[in-house]
């Protein structure tokens, strides 16, 4: 089965992923590990993978505090990570 691919941008750079990929998986696959900066400015990334921990929050299409693990990649999406 050939997977459909879609294009989005992470921190302004184009990234291609398979349809159905979560934003969290896309970010990690692109080699980035830090999703957000904690209160004490530590880098953080996904922990629970299922919407519980809020460590994977990124900005999606200008909206901050979006859980990357609960968001499916869409064509043209603009994702910003921090840290």
């Amino acid at each position: 089965m050939s997977e459909e691919r879609i294009q989005l941008k992470i921190n302004g750079l184009p990234v291609e992923v398979a349809q159905g990929t979560s934003v969290a998986a896309a970010i990690l696959n692109s080699g980035r590990t830090s999703f957000r900066q904690s209160v004490d400015e530590e880098s953080r990334g996904p922990v629970c993978g299922m919407g519980i921990c809020f460590e994977c929050r990124v900005s999606v299409n200008g909206h901050p505090h979006i859980r990357a693990c609960m968001t499916t990649c869409e064509a043209g999406m603009e994702v910003i990570t921090f840290g």
Binding site: S43, P46, V47, G49, C69
Partner: peptide, 18 residues
Amino acid sequence: PNVMGVGGLQALVKAGLD
């Protein structure tokens, strides 16, 4: 970063993490 849950990592792989 990259310290995750057990089901957590599994869920991420199911969501496309390579």
